[in-house]
């Protein structure tokens, strides 16, 4: 029973109801961080961590939270975990903390986290909420990482900071700036939707 529920969650978060390319959530960070693969990876890991644990905590406390202050308490829980991530990065991974700068704090504003807390954790048990939050983060990650990979490669000719393209490669300036992320997401949505429409067509 539990296994099948997890399978449904995997399908939902990664594909059918993917937070980024279906629900179009978390777009601000998608536009901002994806010109650098390393920053994107850390951002995605942080979002996954925060979504999983805030979902877990919201679910644990849900029967005590008054309806009126529900969202404020959710925000409190989310910022609690984001501050922990920030402190841990500052103390144990200072270089990464420097590279991400203000973006760590901005994890708080990622709509995916609040969305999952409100849509899932408020109505489900703690463990399954944790799994849902974790999978949502993975759903976010699988959209961001390919976009970051292509953007970093075309804009700087590098992957994870290592030079890959030849020295005389002319960088595409547009890939560095936010508009290219819009194009990339549009293409991503186009491909993903085409695949899912084709699948539906097959079933008929």
């Amino acid at each position: 029973m539990k296994n099948s529920k997890t399978t449904v969650l995997i399908k939902n978060n990664i594909w059918i109801n993917n937070p980024v390319f279906v629900q179009i959530l978390g777009i601000c960070s998608t536009l901002a961080v994806t010109n650098n693969f390393k920053n994107t990876l850390i951002m995605a890991v942080s979002v996954t961590f925060v979504t999983a644990f805030s979902n877990f905590t919201v679910s644990m406390l849900k029967s005590f939270i008054p309806n009126k202050v529900r969202m404020i308490v959710q925000t409190l829980i989310i910022s609690f975990y984001v501050i922990i991530v920030d402190i841990v990065l500052k103390a144990y991974m200072p270089d990464i903390s420097k590279a991400l700068g203000p973006y760590v704090g901005l994890v708080i504003t990622n709509c995916i986290i609040m969305g999952r807390a409100e849509a899932f954790a408020q109505a489900n048990a703690p463990i399954i909420s944790f799994v849902d939050g974790f999978l949502s983060g993975i759903g976010y990650m699988i959209v961001l990482l390919p976009i970051a990979l292509i953007r970093e490669l075309l804009s700087f000719g590098t992957f994870y900071g290592y030079s890959i393209l030849p020295e005389n490669y002319i960088s595409m300036t547009i890939m560095i700036t936010a508009p290219s992320a819009f194009f990339m997401i549009a293409v991503y949505i186009w491909i993903a939707k085409s695949i899912s429409f084709n699948k539906k067509g097959d079933k008929k």
Partner: peptide
């Protein structure tokens, strides 16, 4: 409730902060 939960989370954060 709001007071207690804010207080509890802040105490934990203050503890982590003082540790690091």
């Amino acid at each position: 409730f709001t007071f207690i939960i804010s207080f509890a989370f802040i105490v934990i954060l203050a503890f982590i902060n003082s540790m690091t």
